[in-house]
Design a protein around this nucleic acid. Structure first.
Lengths: 208, 208
DNA sequence: TAGATTGTTAATCGATTAACAATC
DNA sequence: TAGATTGTTAATCGATTAACAATC
């Protein structure tokens, strides 16, 4: 799919930002943009933008720049936007409910097919038409359905255990909101959202 | 406060992780640890750990290693744990409510003193004993109270506008959950939690 | 064509790792 | 004291920026 293997994490983390800014430009009917202009918008150097994009292909044209709509689509394809991803969400607490309710992720292609929780009070309830099932049914559910992703919103203490069930159930990625570093096989990708650590980083900077 | 000025972002982002692991060790009554052992636990090199810590002081002892409890406290102090931070939360939607409800941040010293929303249906409701006020009252509230931090959970379209009110109201930091890069003066620190970008990063990695 | 801007190579900068003298 | 492990300097590695020939 990509031109070169082993694109660095630094580059990958910047791609969604390009995608977002280009989406804005598409919305504003901007047809073309140079790396210089885009760089000024985003706050990157033109050089960095060209280097980043050239990890994936030659999307520009000398003397012209980049076609906004085309580049937006290309980056979308690179990131995997548009494909459908079946996900299960585990832990219907504060964060879990927020994620399940947040419609923005549907645009990316995320579809939450089932929600699980250990709390009997929550089991049977529905979030956006998706029923909350008992966590004990997770293993069986994963056997009977092809699930790409697990969204992990359980308390720290249960996170690794639930993670193992997800991994054994065949998920290829875990979006982890639990404050812990999960142990998974190399084939499974983990993306962490560690809110406490984010907050601490902010607090540190505020104290300077 | 710190030994050297200008600690790099790469280091700062790792500090909360040290703090978390050391907190675990304290809980497990571990008295001392060497950079080698800690490195194996976290997945960093011993060298990196020593380099990182020496940005802030000489916390170790040759031939012994680090006193776990002491190092945990020291890093806590560096990060600013324990101090009290007054915060307002703007946007009581999915994410906003989740953050307001999440008690874990209280441990760090975060106290949400008021919540604001534009939706009249939400105004007057309470989340954990904190009343949701009308967004129009934000400016006045900030004039009458000393607020350190704004937690921004409003839709993208309103984010910069609300951000400006927060900045003029004297906040020193903004924890931003809106999918936008905010423009603020240099004195104000912004920490972004861009969930869509996090999800896209995961999706990209899953497709490899 | 001439001007603009890319793709890409080379130079620089910063961050990580290795090595080791200092010292508990 | 001898062994262990730090703090710190030096070496390496990787990422960013600058430069420029290629070309639309």
């Amino acid at each position: 799919m990509e031109k070169k293997k082993n694109v660095s994490m630094a580059v990958i983390k910047r791609m969604p930002k390009y995608y977002r800014y280009l989406g804005e430009l598409v919305k504003n009917d901007v047809d073309r943009i140079s790396s210089k202009e885009l760089g000024e918008k985003i706050g990157f150097t033109a050089s960095q933008i060209r280097q980043d994009l050239n990890n994936f292909g030659d999307f520009g044209q000398q003397g012209y720049g980049y076609n906004v709509k085309e580049l937006h689509n290309q980056i979308g394809t690179i990131l995997g936007v548009g494909k459908e991803y079946n996900a299960v969400l585990i832990g219907a607490g504060n964060i879990g409910q927020a994620i399940a309710n947040y419609s923005r992720f549907t645009d990316i292609g995320l579809g939450i097919t089932a929600i699980f929780d250990a709390n009997p009070k929550l089991v049977g309830m529905r979030i956006r038409d998706v029923e909350i099932k008992d966590i004990d049914e997770l293993k069986e559910y994963l056997e009977e359905n092809t699930i790409d992703m697990g969204i992990l919103c359980v308390p720290r203490i249960n996170a690794q255990k639930v993670c193992d069930v997800l991994v054994n159930g065949g998920v290829k990625g875990i979006w982890n909101f639990a404050p812990i570093d999960l142990h998974v096989p190399e084939t499974v990708k983990v993306e962490n959202v560690h809110l406490s650590e984010s907050l601490l980083t902010l607090v540190y900077q505020m104290n300077k």
